[in-house]
Design a binder for these strands. Structure first.
Lengths: 167, 167
DNA sequence: ATAAACTTTCATTTTTTTTTGAAAGTTTAA
DNA sequence: TTAAACTTTCAAAAAAAAATGAAAGTTTAT
Protein backbone atom coordinates (compact mmCIF):
# COMPACT_ATOMS: atom_id res chain seq x y z
CA UNK A 1 0.00 0.00 0.00
CA UNK A 2 1.38 3.37 -0.85
CA UNK A 3 0.81 6.75 0.67
CA UNK A 4 -2.13 8.03 -1.34
CA UNK A 5 -4.00 4.78 -0.99
CA UNK A 6 -3.36 4.66 2.75
CA UNK A 7 -4.47 8.23 3.23
CA UNK A 8 -7.64 7.58 1.32
CA UNK A 9 -8.35 4.44 3.29
CA UNK A 10 -7.86 6.26 6.54
CA UNK A 11 -10.16 9.12 5.56
CA UNK A 12 -12.86 6.77 4.36
CA UNK A 13 -12.74 4.58 7.45
CA UNK A 14 -12.73 7.48 9.82
CA UNK A 15 -15.77 8.81 8.00
CA UNK A 16 -17.60 5.53 8.41
CA UNK A 17 -16.72 5.44 12.07
CA UNK A 18 -17.97 8.98 12.56
CA UNK A 19 -21.39 8.10 11.28
CA UNK A 20 -21.70 5.44 13.96
CA UNK A 21 -20.97 8.05 16.57
CA UNK A 22 -23.49 10.71 15.74
CA UNK A 23 -21.06 12.77 13.71
CA UNK A 24 -21.83 12.89 10.05
CA UNK A 25 -19.66 11.24 7.48
CA UNK A 26 -18.32 14.32 5.77
CA UNK A 27 -17.55 16.02 9.05
CA UNK A 28 -15.53 13.03 10.18
CA UNK A 29 -13.78 12.82 6.81
CA UNK A 30 -12.78 16.44 6.85
CA UNK A 31 -11.45 15.98 10.33
CA UNK A 32 -9.52 12.90 9.30
CA UNK A 33 -8.03 14.70 6.35
CA UNK A 34 -6.88 17.60 8.48
CA UNK A 35 -5.53 15.30 11.18
CA UNK A 36 -3.05 13.70 8.84
CA UNK A 37 -2.14 16.83 6.94
CA UNK A 38 1.17 18.33 7.56
CA UNK A 39 0.10 21.77 6.48
CA UNK A 40 -3.08 23.79 6.86
CA UNK A 41 -5.51 22.91 4.10
CA UNK A 42 -7.73 25.25 2.08
CA UNK A 43 -11.43 24.74 1.52
CA UNK A 44 -10.70 24.30 -2.15
CA UNK A 45 -8.38 21.40 -1.42
CA UNK A 46 -10.86 19.79 0.94
CA UNK A 47 -13.60 20.00 -1.68
CA UNK A 48 -11.25 18.55 -4.19
CA UNK A 49 -9.89 15.68 -2.12
CA UNK A 50 -13.25 14.61 -0.73
CA UNK A 51 -15.26 15.42 -3.84
CA UNK A 52 -17.83 17.48 -2.02
CA UNK A 53 -19.59 20.72 -2.78
CA UNK A 54 -18.59 24.11 -1.47
CA UNK A 55 -21.65 24.39 0.74
CA UNK A 56 -21.07 21.03 2.29
CA UNK A 57 -17.45 21.82 3.02
CA UNK A 58 -18.33 25.18 4.50
CA UNK A 59 -21.05 23.86 6.79
CA UNK A 60 -19.08 20.94 8.10
CA UNK A 61 -15.96 23.01 8.67
CA UNK A 62 -17.99 25.43 10.69
CA UNK A 63 -19.43 22.57 12.73
CA UNK A 64 -15.94 21.24 13.42
CA UNK A 65 -14.85 24.70 14.51
CA UNK A 66 -17.89 24.89 16.81
CA UNK A 67 -16.78 21.62 18.35
CA UNK A 68 -13.43 23.22 18.95
CA UNK A 69 -11.45 20.53 17.15
CA UNK A 70 -10.62 22.39 13.96
CA UNK A 71 -9.02 25.81 13.75
CA UNK A 72 -8.75 28.46 11.11
CA UNK A 73 -5.20 29.09 10.11
CA UNK A 74 -3.76 31.87 8.06
CA UNK A 75 -0.86 31.66 5.72
CA UNK A 76 1.19 34.79 5.28
CA UNK A 77 0.46 36.50 2.01
CA UNK A 78 -2.59 34.31 1.36
CA UNK A 79 -6.00 35.79 1.38
CA UNK A 80 -8.13 32.74 1.78
CA UNK A 81 -8.55 30.70 4.89
CA UNK A 82 -6.83 27.49 5.73
CA UNK A 83 -7.77 24.91 8.32
CA UNK A 84 -5.94 22.68 10.78
CA UNK A 85 -7.19 20.03 13.18
CA UNK A 86 -6.40 19.60 16.81
CA UNK A 87 -3.66 17.02 16.62
CA UNK A 88 -3.02 16.34 20.28
CA UNK A 89 -5.12 13.28 20.97
CA UNK A 90 -5.65 13.89 24.68
CA UNK A 91 -6.84 17.37 23.94
CA UNK A 92 -9.05 16.04 21.17
CA UNK A 93 -10.65 13.43 23.42
CA UNK A 94 -11.26 15.97 26.14
CA UNK A 95 -12.92 18.40 23.76
CA UNK A 96 -15.15 15.75 22.26
CA UNK A 97 -16.15 14.49 25.71
CA UNK A 98 -17.00 17.94 26.94
CA UNK A 99 -19.02 18.74 23.88
CA UNK A 100 -20.99 15.51 24.02
CA UNK A 101 -21.61 15.97 27.69
CA UNK A 102 -22.98 19.42 27.10
CA UNK A 103 -25.10 18.47 24.12
CA UNK A 104 -26.36 15.07 25.11
CA UNK A 105 -25.71 14.00 28.66
CA UNK A 106 -26.79 17.18 30.41
CA UNK A 107 -30.19 17.28 28.67
CA UNK A 108 -30.69 13.59 29.37
CA UNK A 109 -29.96 14.16 33.04
CA UNK A 110 -32.53 16.89 33.14
CA UNK A 111 -35.20 14.56 31.82
CA UNK A 112 -34.16 11.76 34.17
CA UNK A 113 -34.35 14.07 37.15
CA UNK A 114 -37.79 15.24 36.12
CA UNK A 115 -39.33 11.89 35.48
CA UNK A 116 -37.79 10.26 38.52
CA UNK A 117 -39.30 12.95 40.72
CA UNK A 118 -42.95 12.28 40.02
CA UNK A 119 -45.35 11.76 42.86
CA UNK A 120 -46.57 8.22 42.76
CA UNK A 121 -49.43 6.24 44.10
CA UNK A 122 -48.61 2.93 45.70
CA UNK A 123 -48.95 0.94 42.48
CA UNK A 124 -46.13 -1.48 41.79
CA UNK A 125 -45.45 -0.34 38.26
CA UNK A 126 -45.18 3.27 39.34
CA UNK A 127 -42.79 2.37 42.12
CA UNK A 128 -40.67 0.43 39.71
CA UNK A 129 -40.58 3.27 37.23
CA UNK A 130 -39.48 5.75 39.83
CA UNK A 131 -36.83 3.46 41.19
CA UNK A 132 -35.42 2.54 37.82
CA UNK A 133 -35.24 6.10 36.46
CA UNK A 134 -33.74 7.19 39.77
CA UNK A 135 -30.99 4.62 39.44
CA UNK A 136 -30.41 5.66 35.88
CA UNK A 137 -30.08 9.26 36.97
CA UNK A 138 -27.44 8.38 39.55
CA UNK A 139 -25.56 6.25 37.08
CA UNK A 140 -25.47 8.79 34.29
CA UNK A 141 -24.56 11.56 36.74
CA UNK A 142 -21.66 9.53 38.02
CA UNK A 143 -20.45 8.69 34.52
CA UNK A 144 -20.65 12.32 33.51
CA UNK A 145 -18.60 13.33 36.55
CA UNK A 146 -15.92 10.87 35.58
CA UNK A 147 -15.65 12.76 32.32
CA UNK A 148 -15.33 16.04 34.18
CA UNK A 149 -12.61 14.64 36.39
CA UNK A 150 -10.76 13.34 33.41
CA UNK A 151 -10.89 16.78 31.89
CA UNK A 152 -9.15 18.21 34.93
CA UNK A 153 -6.18 15.95 34.43
CA UNK A 154 -5.54 17.48 31.02
CA UNK A 155 -2.17 15.96 30.16
CA UNK A 156 -2.09 12.32 29.26
CA UNK A 157 -5.11 11.37 31.27
CA UNK A 158 -5.62 8.17 29.38
CA UNK A 159 -2.16 6.86 30.25
CA UNK A 160 -2.63 7.82 33.86
CA UNK A 161 -6.06 6.24 33.93
CA UNK A 162 -4.67 3.03 32.52
CA UNK A 163 -2.02 3.06 35.27
CA UNK A 164 -4.63 3.45 37.96
CA UNK A 165 -6.87 0.76 36.61
CA UNK A 166 -4.06 -1.71 36.12
CA UNK A 167 -2.77 -1.21 39.63
CA UNK B 1 -46.53 15.30 35.97
CA UNK B 2 -48.21 12.00 36.35
CA UNK B 3 -47.03 8.50 35.66
CA UNK B 4 -48.15 8.01 32.09
CA UNK B 5 -46.79 11.35 31.03
CA UNK B 6 -43.47 10.71 32.75
CA UNK B 7 -43.15 7.29 31.20
CA UNK B 8 -43.83 8.68 27.79
CA UNK B 9 -41.34 11.47 28.26
CA UNK B 10 -38.69 9.04 29.34
CA UNK B 11 -39.23 6.73 26.39
CA UNK B 12 -39.20 9.61 23.91
CA UNK B 13 -36.06 11.16 25.34
CA UNK B 14 -34.19 7.91 25.51
CA UNK B 15 -35.12 7.32 21.89
CA UNK B 16 -33.74 10.70 20.86
CA UNK B 17 -30.56 10.03 22.79
CA UNK B 18 -30.18 6.65 21.12
CA UNK B 19 -30.16 8.16 17.68
CA UNK B 20 -27.22 10.34 18.64
CA UNK B 21 -25.33 7.24 19.66
CA UNK B 22 -25.66 5.13 16.57
CA UNK B 23 -28.58 3.14 17.90
CA UNK B 24 -31.79 3.73 16.07
CA UNK B 25 -34.68 5.56 17.64
CA UNK B 26 -37.11 2.67 17.86
CA UNK B 27 -34.49 0.34 19.25
CA UNK B 28 -33.70 2.79 22.00
CA UNK B 29 -37.38 3.37 22.69
CA UNK B 30 -38.14 -0.31 23.00
CA UNK B 31 -35.24 -0.66 25.35
CA UNK B 32 -36.42 2.29 27.42
CA UNK B 33 -39.90 0.87 27.61
CA UNK B 34 -38.64 -2.49 28.80
CA UNK B 35 -36.25 -0.89 31.28
CA UNK B 36 -39.03 0.74 33.20
CA UNK B 37 -41.50 -2.08 32.92
CA UNK B 38 -42.20 -4.09 35.96
CA UNK B 39 -43.31 -7.11 34.02
CA UNK B 40 -42.19 -8.75 30.79
CA UNK B 41 -43.90 -7.07 27.84
CA UNK B 42 -45.37 -8.71 24.75
CA UNK B 43 -44.65 -7.62 21.21
CA UNK B 44 -48.27 -6.64 20.89
CA UNK B 45 -47.95 -4.22 23.80
CA UNK B 46 -44.75 -2.75 22.47
CA UNK B 47 -46.37 -2.13 19.08
CA UNK B 48 -49.28 -0.57 20.81
CA UNK B 49 -47.39 1.68 23.20
CA UNK B 50 -44.89 2.92 20.65
CA UNK B 51 -47.28 2.94 17.71
CA UNK B 52 -45.00 0.94 15.47
CA UNK B 53 -45.55 -1.87 13.01
CA UNK B 54 -45.11 -5.53 13.73
CA UNK B 55 -42.11 -5.81 11.44
CA UNK B 56 -40.37 -2.88 13.03
CA UNK B 57 -40.94 -4.24 16.51
CA UNK B 58 -39.73 -7.68 15.51
CA UNK B 59 -36.53 -6.46 13.88
CA UNK B 60 -35.56 -4.10 16.64
CA UNK B 61 -36.28 -6.62 19.35
CA UNK B 62 -34.06 -9.07 17.61
CA UNK B 63 -31.30 -6.45 17.38
CA UNK B 64 -31.61 -5.75 21.10
CA UNK B 65 -31.38 -9.45 21.82
CA UNK B 66 -28.27 -9.65 19.60
CA UNK B 67 -26.75 -6.87 21.68
CA UNK B 68 -27.48 -8.99 24.72
CA UNK B 69 -29.45 -6.31 26.53
CA UNK B 70 -32.94 -7.67 26.05
CA UNK B 71 -34.09 -11.18 26.88
CA UNK B 72 -36.98 -13.32 25.87
CA UNK B 73 -39.15 -14.21 28.80
CA UNK B 74 -41.90 -16.74 29.05
CA UNK B 75 -45.00 -16.47 31.13
CA UNK B 76 -46.49 -19.71 32.40
CA UNK B 77 -49.53 -20.70 30.44
CA UNK B 78 -48.90 -18.08 27.76
CA UNK B 79 -47.97 -19.10 24.30
CA UNK B 80 -46.50 -15.91 22.94
CA UNK B 81 -43.17 -14.41 23.84
CA UNK B 82 -42.54 -11.66 26.28
CA UNK B 83 -39.46 -9.49 26.61
CA UNK B 84 -37.46 -7.99 29.45
CA UNK B 85 -34.47 -5.68 29.49
CA UNK B 86 -31.24 -6.01 31.35
CA UNK B 87 -31.95 -3.80 34.32
CA UNK B 88 -28.64 -3.88 36.11
CA UNK B 89 -26.92 -0.77 34.87
CA UNK B 90 -23.35 -1.94 35.36
CA UNK B 91 -24.12 -5.05 33.40
CA UNK B 92 -25.85 -2.97 30.75
CA UNK B 93 -22.89 -0.62 30.38
CA UNK B 94 -20.46 -3.49 30.14
CA UNK B 95 -22.50 -5.22 27.45
CA UNK B 96 -22.86 -2.06 25.40
CA UNK B 97 -19.14 -1.32 25.68
CA UNK B 98 -18.18 -4.80 24.62
CA UNK B 99 -20.50 -4.75 21.69
CA UNK B 100 -19.34 -1.38 20.44
CA UNK B 101 -15.75 -2.40 20.87
CA UNK B 102 -16.35 -5.48 18.78
CA UNK B 103 -18.34 -3.74 16.08
CA UNK B 104 -16.58 -0.42 15.80
CA UNK B 105 -13.29 -0.12 17.64
CA UNK B 106 -11.72 -3.39 16.57
CA UNK B 107 -12.29 -2.75 12.84
CA UNK B 108 -10.99 0.80 13.24
CA UNK B 109 -7.86 -0.52 14.89
CA UNK B 110 -7.30 -2.87 12.03
CA UNK B 111 -7.37 -0.01 9.55
CA UNK B 112 -5.15 2.16 11.72
CA UNK B 113 -2.60 -0.59 11.99
CA UNK B 114 -2.60 -1.11 8.26
CA UNK B 115 -2.27 2.49 7.22
CA UNK B 116 0.31 3.31 9.85
CA UNK B 117 2.48 0.50 8.61
CA UNK B 118 3.09 1.73 5.10
CA UNK B 119 6.57 2.06 3.78
CA UNK B 120 7.35 5.68 3.24
CA UNK B 121 9.79 7.76 1.32
CA UNK B 122 11.45 10.57 3.20
CA UNK B 123 8.78 13.15 2.25
CA UNK B 124 7.56 15.27 5.14
CA UNK B 125 3.87 14.70 4.51
CA UNK B 126 4.33 10.95 4.44
CA UNK B 127 6.31 11.02 7.66
CA UNK B 128 3.61 13.07 9.29
CA UNK B 129 0.89 10.73 8.12
CA UNK B 130 2.67 7.70 9.47
CA UNK B 131 3.39 9.35 12.79
CA UNK B 132 -0.12 10.66 13.27
CA UNK B 133 -1.91 7.42 12.40
CA UNK B 134 0.58 5.55 14.57
CA UNK B 135 -0.26 7.75 17.53
CA UNK B 136 -3.92 7.29 16.83
CA UNK B 137 -3.48 3.55 16.81
CA UNK B 138 -1.78 3.60 20.20
CA UNK B 139 -4.41 5.88 21.63
CA UNK B 140 -7.38 3.90 20.44
CA UNK B 141 -5.76 0.64 21.50
CA UNK B 142 -5.21 2.00 24.97
CA UNK B 143 -8.77 3.30 25.22
CA UNK B 144 -10.11 -0.05 24.09
CA UNK B 145 -8.04 -1.83 26.71
CA UNK B 146 -9.50 0.37 29.41
CA UNK B 147 -12.88 -0.94 28.33
CA UNK B 148 -11.66 -4.51 28.60
CA UNK B 149 -10.25 -3.89 32.06
CA UNK B 150 -13.49 -2.35 33.15
CA UNK B 151 -15.29 -5.43 31.97
CA UNK B 152 -13.17 -7.57 34.25
CA UNK B 153 -14.30 -5.65 37.28
CA UNK B 154 -17.91 -6.65 36.60
CA UNK B 155 -19.59 -5.47 39.80
CA UNK B 156 -19.97 -1.75 40.28
CA UNK B 157 -16.99 -0.79 38.21
CA UNK B 158 -18.20 2.75 37.79
CA UNK B 159 -18.28 3.39 41.53
CA UNK B 160 -14.86 1.84 41.94
CA UNK B 161 -13.50 3.85 39.04
CA UNK B 162 -14.85 7.05 40.54
CA UNK B 163 -13.13 6.15 43.81
CA UNK B 164 -9.83 5.60 42.09
CA UNK B 165 -10.03 8.78 40.10
CA UNK B 166 -11.05 10.87 43.06
CA UNK B 167 -8.25 9.57 45.21
C1' DA C 1 -51.75 -34.05 10.32
C1' DT C 2 -53.66 -29.68 10.58
C1' DA C 3 -55.06 -25.39 11.90
C1' DA C 4 -54.60 -21.67 15.07
C1' DA C 5 -51.39 -18.50 17.16
C1' DC C 6 -47.77 -16.32 16.74
C1' DT C 7 -43.02 -14.41 14.57
C1' DT C 8 -39.91 -13.20 10.85
C1' DT C 9 -38.69 -11.54 6.41
C1' DC C 10 -38.16 -8.35 2.83
C1' DA C 11 -39.78 -5.52 -1.29
C1' DT C 12 -41.85 -1.24 -1.16
C1' DT C 13 -42.92 3.23 0.86
C1' DT C 14 -42.03 6.87 4.02
C1' DT C 15 -39.20 9.70 6.67
C1' DT C 16 -34.99 11.73 7.83
C1' DT C 17 -30.57 13.27 6.85
C1' DT C 18 -27.23 15.00 3.90
C1' DT C 19 -25.66 17.33 -0.17
C1' DT C 20 -25.83 20.54 -3.76
C1' DG C 21 -25.21 24.90 -6.00
C1' DA C 22 -26.49 29.34 -6.98
C1' DA C 23 -27.51 33.65 -4.79
C1' DA C 24 -26.38 36.60 -1.03
C1' DG C 25 -22.95 38.12 2.00
C1' DT C 26 -18.31 39.52 3.45
C1' DT C 27 -13.67 41.04 3.30
C1' DT C 28 -9.66 42.99 1.26
C1' DA C 29 -6.76 45.51 -1.92
C1' DA C 30 -6.23 49.10 -4.85
C1' DT D 1 -15.80 53.08 -3.52
C1' DT D 2 -15.70 49.23 -6.13
C1' DA D 3 -14.71 44.93 -7.82
C1' DA D 4 -12.40 40.69 -7.19
C1' DA D 5 -11.80 36.84 -4.14
C1' DC D 6 -13.56 34.34 -1.18
C1' DT D 7 -17.32 32.28 2.33
C1' DT D 8 -21.93 31.40 4.00
C1' DT D 9 -26.71 30.44 3.58
C1' DC D 10 -30.65 27.90 2.46
C1' DA D 11 -34.31 26.03 -0.63
C1' DA D 12 -34.45 22.18 -3.41
C1' DA D 13 -32.65 17.57 -4.78
C1' DA D 14 -30.54 13.35 -3.71
C1' DA D 15 -29.23 9.77 -0.83
C1' DA D 16 -29.57 7.01 3.12
C1' DA D 17 -32.02 5.01 6.81
C1' DA D 18 -36.03 3.34 8.93
C1' DA D 19 -40.79 1.70 8.89
C1' DT D 20 -44.59 -0.73 6.91
C1' DG D 21 -47.41 -4.72 6.15
C1' DA D 22 -48.58 -8.69 3.84
C1' DA D 23 -46.76 -13.12 2.70
C1' DA D 24 -43.91 -16.80 4.33
C1' DG D 25 -42.29 -19.28 8.12
C1' DT D 26 -42.60 -21.55 12.80
C1' DT D 27 -44.37 -23.62 16.75
C1' DT D 28 -47.77 -25.76 19.57
C1' DA D 29 -52.10 -28.01 20.84
C1' DT D 30 -55.39 -31.14 19.60
Amino acid sequence: MEFKEAKNKFVQSWGALGSQWGINKTMAQIHALLMVSNQPVSMEDIMDELQISRGNASMNLRALIDWGIVYKAFKPGERREFFTAEKDLDELAVKISKERSKREIKPALKVLKEVSSIEISGAEDEKHFKEQTGKLYDFVLKADNVLDKITEYRENWLTKLVMKIMS
